[in-house]
Amino acid sequence: MRTAAIVFEGGPLPADELQERIAQLRHAVTLDTVEKLQRAGLEVILATNHRDLAEAAHSLGARIFATEAAGFHFGRVLGQAVRESGADAVIYLSGAALPLMALEEIAWICRALAQGGPTVVVNNVQSADLVAWHPAAFLERVEPPENDNLLGWRLREAGMERVLIPHSAAIHFDLDTPTDYLILALSGRGGPRAQAALRMLAWPDDRLRAAADVLATDLPEVALIGRVGSAIMEYFNRNLPVRLRVLSEERGMKALGREARGEVRSLVGDLVTDLGPERFFERLGEICDAAFFDTRVLFANRGRRVSEWDRFHSDLGLADQIRDPFVHQFTRAAVNCRIPVVLGGHSVVAGGLWVLADRAIAARGGPAVP
């Protein structure tokens, strides 16, 4: 069976310094991933409109599928790339997805695809970052999805058996926000290009380091707020003496289209609005030793729209750079909270938190119980 890995990494060119830095980090991770997939024996196809990245990947031996930022439609472009690959099976992922995935996990995916009938393998039921399927031509049976969050669902609905990759930090951790890159840097893991790029960062990480250290202590009270799944809670319960206070809501809000339609409703968001950010974090600091806050649910509550600029500067705690008055006030209150509060996207209560849990387990003498 001939299996191709199709990696998507592109989009509009950076418009500001922060976007430029994140693009450099994503490109470094992408090239590390291309090399890793090749070591696993896969043919690698990079779909991109970024010329420098294409040239670097081509020099590593990857095939380049040129895309355009204007009028880009994920599903249609993926379908064309799959047809041109001629592969029997496909592993799709974005360039910044699963930077810690090991060769053994890639081999597991390939074995899963080779067994039985039509099969789709995903790393996450709600919102997959990696989707692999066999036979590759099965993609022709589904309506081309607008984004990769829907790809696994569409293939399953078309009749494929869905297989979930066993849980691990590597399988759940992907890179979307500045906080995710700070977690990768703190872990000391990842490919050589990524680590070299991470060493050039000058982003503040004191709150992250303090919160990560709390996880390794005895019986701390730790709040998890946002799209928290059961797998990370179970992993904590098996491996760390941590008392979790969990407020989980709006899982799958992107994949289900709730965010796009303005339908997100957040109890925490309403509490922050009613109490005010300062009183909310004052109360949170009275009952917890650290907090990990997936702010995207809060930011989308009741149809609110927050720019990437404001979201990312909130993640970094740089309140003075934020233009939205509410996000500015919220971020300032979080930074001034008496406990370390880690702000970010889904990963801070999912894959990124899993990476930090592994760090805490190692600090306590490990090993982890899967």
Rank of each mutant, 00 (worst) to 15 (best):
F236I: 08
D270I: 08
R207H: 10
S248K: 09
R283W: 10
T48E: 00
V327G: 01
I165R: 06
E146S: 15
L13W: 15
R243N: 09
H313W: 14
A97Y: 11
D52W: 07
Y181R: 00
E259N: 09
F236Y: 11
D274N: 13
G188E: 09
L139I: 14
G11P: 01
A4F: 12
R39W: 15
L150Q: 13
L175N: 02
E143P: 08
L100C: 06
L78Q: 08
D320W: 12
S314F: 02
V142K: 08
G276M: 07
A194G: 13
V142C: 11
A210P: 00
F293N: 07
V34N: 02
D213M: 10
A81F: 09
F281H: 05
E20K: 12
I106T: 13
E55A: 10
R63T: 10
A89S: 05
G365N: 09
E157P: 00
R251L: 14
A211R: 02
G86D: 14
A114D: 13
F173G: 03
R364T: 10
D320S: 13
R258C: 05
F280M: 00
E9H: 11
P277C: 00
A136Q: 03
K254M: 15
V29N: 11
R227V: 01
P14Q: 10
A211C: 06
A23I: 02
L186D: 01
F330Y: 15
A260Y: 09
G252F: 11
E84Q: 10
A170Y: 03
I106L: 13
A357F: 08
G226S: 02
R296T: 12
L353G: 11
V77S: 12
G352D: 07
N239G: 11
R258V: 15
G352H: 06
L42T: 04
A197D: 00
I64R: 13
K36R: 10
G10K: 05
P99C: 13
N237F: 11
V228F: 04
E20M: 06
S230E: 15
D52K: 11
E161I: 07
G257P: 01
D205S: 06
L78I: 08
H346K: 05
V355A: 14
D310K: 08
L18T: 12
E84R: 12
L150N: 03
G95K: 13
A57H: 01
E68T: 11
A211P: 08
R311H: 13
I109L: 09
W108T: 05
G95F: 04
I109N: 04
S248F: 07
L164Y: 08
R302T: 09
G252I: 12
S94H: 15
A194W: 01
V163S: 08
R51K: 14
D205A: 14
M160Y: 08
A136D: 01
R283G: 00
F330S: 02
L31K: 05
P178D: 09
L298Y: 02
G303P: 04
V131A: 11
P241R: 02
V163D: 00
V242D: 03
G226A: 03
L25S: 00
R311C: 06
A62Y: 02
R338Y: 00
F74I: 10
V268D: 01
R141V: 04
L155V: 13
R265A: 14
R111V: 05
G71W: 05
M1N: 01
I91Y: 07
W203S: 02
L37E: 03
E143I: 07
M1I: 06
L42M: 03
L284A: 04
R207T: 14
R154H: 03
